[in-house]
Computed example of a mutant assay.
Amino acid sequence: MVMPEGLFFFAKFSILKTYCLLQGTILHPKTIVRYAVKLTPYAIFDMDGTLLCSTGMWDHVTDRILAKYGKTITHEQRMANMTLTVEGTAAMFVQQLGVPLTEPECAELIRAEARYGYAQEATVKPGVEQVLAAMHARGVRMCVASGTETPLIEAALTSHGLMRWFEFAVDCKNPDGKKKPDVYLDALHRFGVQNPVQATVFEDSPVGIATARAAGFATVGIYDEPMAEFWPQITQTADFASRTWQDWLQNVQQTGPAPRK
């Protein structure tokens, strides 16, 4: 019996999606072509929760500062804080939570606590070093775009031996952070490129993924335990989603050099 073309496509898709689920990866149903995971010439990486296990570290920073002044934070406020810059977090602490400091004073306190946290608490996510080496070997140019300030990014990645893989790091210039695509576009333009389809954004945040994808970037969602409640949303939004960097590495190893314009 000859299977109708539409049914054959559905069968192929179902088999492929089942394979992805078994491998711990999720195929976005609308982007089956992208599952080939063809490397783009440029890659833009988030840092916290994507390259480093540091999302929980930021929770500790928040808790230490608020405990010092007898303040508390709700779960909703903590989640909203994930996408804010240092200045945005300082504004939240002072305006919403009543921390008795000026916003610049609070921002400096956050930076000091973050420097300690990156040095003493953050760790590199398993598989990151191997992925960066594999992408570099295939000619992908890489940078970091984060809500964390550039000096903190560079210090954190240098201390963990990762900064050598990246050409530069950029941070969010607006307090709303990655709710707007500015930081991704800034990174793209630093490469001397205008078209977002030339770059892939790697993120653990559903906000960052949605923003980057809406701006025209290819997107890869990376699982981070502190953001587990958002994983279903990430798998429905990102072009490709993986629970581990090792899963992504398997796909990178099956690709050739990144295409150039």
Rank of each mutant, 00 (worst) to 15 (best):
V2N: 11
L7H: 11
F8N: 15
A11H: 13
C20S: 11
L27F: 12
T31N: 15
V33G: 14
D46M: 04
C53T: 12
S54R: 09
S54Q: 11
G56A: 05
M57F: 00
V61T: 05
T62L: 07
I73K: 12
E76H: 08
E76K: 14
A80T: 09
A80Q: 13
N81D: 13
V86M: 09
A91C: 04
F93L: 09
F93K: 04
Q95I: 01
L97R: 02
V99R: 08
V99L: 09
E108Y: 01
L109Q: 13
R111H: 10
R111M: 12
G117Q: 10
G117R: 01
G117V: 03
V131Q: 04
G139S: 09
V140Q: 06
M142W: 11
C143E: 04
V144W: 05
G147V: 03
T148D: 03
E149L: 12
E149F: 11
T150I: 09
I153S: 01
I153Y: 08
E154W: 04
L162P: 10
W165C: 02
F166Q: 02
V170D: 00
D171I: 03
N174T: 15
N174G: 10
P181S: 03
H189R: 14
G192W: 12
Q194L: 11
V197K: 15
T200V: 15
F202D: 02
D204K: 03
S205T: 06
A218W: 08
G221L: 04
G221P: 07
D224E: 08
D224R: 00
P226G: 08
A228G: 03
A228P: 00
A228T: 07
W231K: 06
T244W: 04
T244D: 08
T244Y: 07
D247N: 15
Q250V: 05
N251G: 11
G256F: 04
P259Q: 00
